[in-house]
Amino acid sequence: MTTTRETPLRPSAPPAAPAAPLGEPRGDTAVSARGLRRRYGGPDGFEAVRGLDLDVPRGCVMALLGVNGAGKTSALEVIEGLAPATGGAVRVLGLDPVADRRALRPRLGVLLQTSGLPGDLTVLDVLRMWAGTLSRPRPLGDVLDEMALTRLAGTRVVALSGGERRRLDLACTLLGSPELVVLDEPTTGLDPESRRRVWGLITALRDAGGTVLLSTHHLEEAEALADQVALMATGRIVRVGTLAEIVADQPSVVRYRVVGEPGVRRLETREPQADLLRILAAAEREGVRLEDLEVRAGTLEQVFLDVARDAREEVAA
């Protein structure tokens, strides 16, 4: 029996886009960045984004993963056109996010890390205001239903819980039926039910042909949603690909307990089948019984921790 790790998460997942040469953002991608840089506070200031290369294929959910301070939000703000790059090039839906802002905005939905909604407006006031600024707003009733906000339509933002406020923020993001949605930690602060609801919306958006670029700390979110994952550290993308590709070079882990002996035994292996047979044969030969036996493929968590460790070491050096 052979095992393969090349099965995509979903049959509809688009293939990974091969990297274009430096300095030439791709035209067939929703987001294409080459050598992107962002520095705060002049030439001697802190450089949060340091030569980021990224291609987000159209019709795909890409998760941008990274520890705090990796530069995710700084990079997203450049992609969103909220801040100019200090170096490199970026194209969003084929447009320059700063110079072509007017043309890009109706096609782009953005959710910032921090919700910025006036506290003294009601949920309906906020949606009416936002709809009034859009070229093609969806019916407010549909969006209220979709976000489970209908019963809160008359409630002021200041009285909403964190999760309700986040859902309202997301409602504004999706109100204009954007082709591309950039979400900065969309489910932070949400309860599990709300998180699942948001996941469903993101998946539906992708299934309808939209593109989603999201940053997240939640690895299970990336595993559940992302067609592609980009791991970011110290202002650069250090790994990118499908989840299967990202974890492909990680060893599998075999865990088991020997009945009558304390502790869990753990073995990292690149040949799980052979090693598992060897363990079972040894147990048979020595007359011991194994329990809680499990074999797990390499995980995104392990890759994430490795990247975080490398980043710490780079900073320390």
């Binding site: 909220l82 007017r102 109706p106 919700s115 910025g116 909604l117 006036p118 600024t133």
Partner: peptide, 17 residues
């Protein structure tokens, strides 16, 4: 006040110039 609450930044993400 709106800047403090990140409302201005939020407004800039939409179609408003």
């Amino acid at each position: 006040a709106r800047r403090d609450e990140s409302v201005l930044q939020r407004l800039r993400t939409g179609e408003l110039a």
